[in-house]
C-alpha cells in the first residue's frame, strides 16, 4: 500500500481469476449455486460463498471471482443451461483504495454518490472514472476494489493520484 494522501492508500491487487457469465435466470442460478450461494445477488450487489464472489454487473451478467478450487466446478454447473462463460483474468487490473478519504477521491473522478447510504458496503457497479470504464466495488466502509481494463490501468492510477494530490493541498490550506 502506498499512501497517496492523508487518509487514503492505494495498492495494485495481485493477479486473480475472473470470469464473466452471461445468461438467463437458469444460468445465473447455476453459477451462483456452484459458488455455494443460494441465489445470484440482486442488481449491483455482491454475494460471496465458499467458492468465491459473484458480482451482479448487469441483469443477465455476473462477474465471478472464484477460488482456485471452485474454478473447474463452474464449467460443469453451467454445462446443462444455455450460457456464455468467458475468462477475463488478464483483461482487468485491480486496485485497492483504502482509507477515510477513499470515497472522496473516487468522487473526484465520478458523478456517483459515494455516501454510505447511497453506495453501501457490498454494492458494485460499472461506471466511468474520468474517461475510463471502471468497476467500483465497496468492500468496506472505507475500502474499494476498483477494476479497469488493463490498458487503462496507468491512466486511472495517475488520475487517482492527481485527485489525491488536490486533497492533500486542500488539507494543507484549510
Amino acid at each position: 500500500m502506498v499512501e497517496i494522501t492523508e487518509g487514503c492508500a492505494l495498492a495494485g491487487l495481485p493477479p486473480m481469476v475472473r470470469l464473466v457469465v452471461q445468461g438467463r435466470v437458469a444460468a445465473l442460478d447455476a453459477a451462483a449455486a456452484s459458488l455455494g450461494l443460494e441465489a445470484p445477488p440482486p442488481m449491483l450487489r455482491v454475494a460471496s460463498g465458499i467458492g468465491g464472489s459473484a458480482l451482479r454487473l448487469g441483469p443477465f451478467e455476473l462477474l465471478i471471482l472464484p477460488t482456485w478450487e471452485a474454478r473447474a466446478g463452474l464449467d460443469a454447473a453451467l454445462a446443462p443451461v444455455p450460457h456464455s462463460l468467458v475468462e477475463v483474468s488478464d483483461r482487468n487490473v485491480g486496485f485497492l483504495l483504502e482509507g477515510a478519504r477513499a470515497a472522496d477521491i473516487l468522487a473526484g473522478l465520478c458523478p456517483l454518490d459515494f455516501a454510505l447510504s447511497s453506495f453501501p458496503v457490498g454494492m458494485v457497479t460499472r461506471t466511468l472514472l474520468d474517461k475510463a470504464d471502471a468497476m467500483v466495488w465497496r468492500t468496506d466502509a472505507h475500502s474499494f476494489h476498483v477494476e479497469v481494463w488493463r490498458s487503462f490501468g496507468p491512466y486511472v492510477e495517475a488520475q487517482l493520484r492527481e485527485v489525491a494530490k488536490g486533497i492533500s493541498f486542500s488539507l494543507l490550506t484549510v
Binding site: 442488481m43 454487473l57 448487469g58 441483469p59 451478467e61 457497479t125 460499472r126 461506471t127 466511468l128 470504464d133
Partner: peptide
C-alpha cells in the same frame, strides 16, 4: 427513444 447504459449495465 432508445438509450443504452453503455458505461454501466450495458443494456
Amino acid at each position: 427513444e432508445r438509450w443504452r447504459h453503455s458505461h454501466g449495465c450495458g443494456r
